[in-house]
């Protein structure tokens, strides 16, 4: 068990409510821009940080962020080291057997293959890197490609850059930033996997799920969630 928590970014809210609510600890990876990453001020930043803070304020929860490796992010939730996961995690059938999810806070997202500029479509059957324990990993495992898994998103990009692998498959929203720099391009059709991003919760934590669902409903209704999505993922990103 890697319970050792890298660091936690405390967020005390001066929301003024006399709230007896305990601290809700939210686990995230902190290495997946623009969803969640450590910025130059050594603070957690990204879409999920902003969204999570807004959500907690609405739900009048006292939230605290905890960093945890992606590979052990679900076991540590089940083990009670934090109470929720917001780490760009898609809702999938396989995960639903182990943990519960809130409703989605991002519409179903696209996954894409990315390779160095000039590659042809055959790289999709070559050596494809993915982050381990992702739905992309399960997807690529079913194809003819040689699957190679790395524990962090950063390493998957490095492997393609160094030529160790032919292509990387990941969330398109994550890959876009590298394509924009000009070294890489998307190869072939995008693929839709999963049912959108959701907050991972322990299955027994129905109360917390209802609280989060209500707050997400509110944010969807008044457009503030769409605003955040547009801010972080650009005007073309699908919204609610």
């Amino acid at each position: 068990m890697k319970k050792l928590i890298l660091a936690s970014v405390a967020l005390a809210f001066a929301s003024g409510t006399a709230l007896a609510q305990d601290v809700v600890r939210i686990g995230t990876e902190g290495a997946y821009p623009p969803y969640n990453f450590i910025n130059d001020q050594n603070e957690l930043d990204g879409f999920e940080r902003e969204f999570g803070d807004a959500l907690c304020e609405r739900a009048e929860l006292n939230c605290e962020w905890v960093l945890n490796d992606w590979d052990t992010i679900i076991p540590n939730l089940v083990g009670g080291n934090y109470d929720a996961i917001m780490a760009g995690m898609s809702i999938t059938e396989a995960r639903k057997q182990v943990i519960g999810f809130s409703q989605n806070y991002m519409p179903p997202d696209l996954s894409a293959y990315m390779a160095p500029v000039g590659a042809d479509e055959s790289v999709r059957d070559g050596v494809v890197v993915v982050q381990s324990n992702t739905m992309q990993a399960s997807y690529v495992a079913e194809t003819d490609a040689t699957l190679v898994e790395f524990p962090t998103p950063d390493e998957t990009i490095a492997a393609v850059r160094s030529g160790e692998a032919d292509a990387v498959m990941a969330d398109k929203d994550f890959l876009v930033q590298y394509v924009e720099q000009g070294d890489f391009e998307f190869v072939g059709e995008d693929i839709q996997l999963g049912e959108g991003l959701g907050i991972g919760l322990r299955q027994s934590d129905e109360e917390l799920r209802d609280t989060f669902n209500a707050a997400i409903d509110e944010m969807k209704a008044d457009g503030s969630l769409n605003e955040l999505i547009t801010k972080w993922f650009g005007a073309d990103a699908p919204t609610f």
């Binding site: 890697k2 890298l6 821009p33 990453f37 930043d45 930033q177 590298y178 924009e180």
Partner: peptide
């Protein structure tokens, strides 16, 4: 390896490629 944010952690974290989402983008 024990999950402490030590020298090695930061060397990896800071040295890794930084894209436009960061204030100081740089290659690897």
């Amino acid at each position: 390896l024990l999950g402490i944010r030590d020298i090695v952690y930061w060397a990896r974290e800071l040295g890794g490629q930084k894209t436009g989402f960061y204030a100081y983008p740089h290659p690897d």
